[in-house]
C-alpha cells in the first residue's frame, strides 16, 4: 500500500493540498478540509477503507443488472427485432409469391396468345390452301372443257377441210372438163381429167 499512498501523496501535493506526511505539520487552512473528510488525506480512489463496500455494492448492483438484462431487457429487444425480421421476410415472401403468380399469369397469357396466333395462321393457311385448290380444280375443269371443245372444233374443221378438199378435186375436174370442152370442143374422159388435175396438183406441191 506504500506505493499507492506515496502516489496519492504526490497527487495531493500537486493539487496544493496537504500530503499525508505533511498533514500533521502543515497550515491550519487545510485542517478544516481534513476535518470535513474525517480521515487522513488518502487519494480517494486508492483509499482501501471503502474497497469492501464498493465491491459488495458493485456485485449486488451489477449482478441484479445482469440478471435483469439477460432475463427481461434483452429478450424484449430481441423479441421486437425478431418480430420485425419475421414480418419483413414474410412480406418479402408474399411479394415474391405474388411476383411468381404474376409471372405465371404472364407466361400463361403469352402461351395463350402464341397458341391463338398459331391457330389463326393455320386457319388462314388452310383456307388459303382450300381456296387455291378450289381455284385450281375450277381452272382444270374449265381448261378440260376448253380443250374438249377445241378438239371438237379442230375435228370439225378437219372434216370440213377434208370435205372441202375432196370437193376441190371434183370442182377442179368439172372446171377442167368445162374448160376443155369450151376450148377444144371435145369432151375428155373422166380418167384423163383426173390424171391431169393430179399432175397439176403435184406440180403445185413441188413448187
Amino acid at each position: 500500500m506504500t506505493l499507492t499512498i506515496t502516489l496519492a501523496g504526490r497527487a495531493w501535493a500537486s493539487e496544493g493540498t496537504a500530503t499525508q506526511e505533511d498533514s500533521a505539520t502543515v497550515a491550519e487552512t487545510h485542517a478544516a478540509t481534513e476535518a470535513a473528510h474525517g480521515e487522513a488525506a488518502t487519494f480517494p480512489p486508492f483509499d482501501p477503507a471503502y474497497f469492501a463496500s464498493q465491491l459488495l455494492w458493485l456485485a449486488i448492483t451489477f449482478g441484479l443488472f445482469y440478471w435483469f438484462m439477460s432475463r427481461v431487457a434483452i429478450p424484449r429487444i430481441a423479441g421486437i427485432l425478431e418480430v420485425r425480421r419475421d414480418r419483413i421476410s414474410g412480406d418479402l415472401d408474399d411479394a415474391q409469391r405474388m411476383r411468381d403468380e404474376a409471372d405465371a399469369a404472364h407466361a400463361a397469357y403469352e402461351h395463350e396468345l402464341a397458341a391463338a396466333r398459331a391457330r389463326a395462321s393455320s386457319i388462314a393457311q388452310e383456307s388459303g390452301d382450300r381456296a387455291r385448290a378450289q381455284a385450281e380444280a375450277e381452272r382444270r375443269k374449265v381448261e378440260a372443257g376448253l380443250a374438249a371443245r377445241l378438239q371438237e372444233a379442230e375435228a370439225r374443221i378437219d372434216a370440213i377441210r377434208k370435205k372441202a378438199l375432196a370437193e376441190v378435186d371434183a370442182i377442179a375436174s368439172d372446171t377442167t372438163a368445162a374448160i376443155v370442152k369450151e376450148l377444144v370442143g371435145a369432151t375428155a374422159t373422166k380418167a384423163e381429167i383426173a390424171k391431169a388435175v393430179g399432175a397439176a396438183a403435184k406440180r403445185d406441191e413441188a413448187r
Binding site: A52, S53, F62
Partner: peptide, 11 residues
C-alpha cells in the same frame, strides 16, 4: 465497512 455509500447509490 460495507456501508451504502454515494458510490453504491450511483451504481
Amino acid at each position: 465497512d460495507l456501508s451504502f455509500t454515494n458510490s453504491s447509490l450511483f451504481m
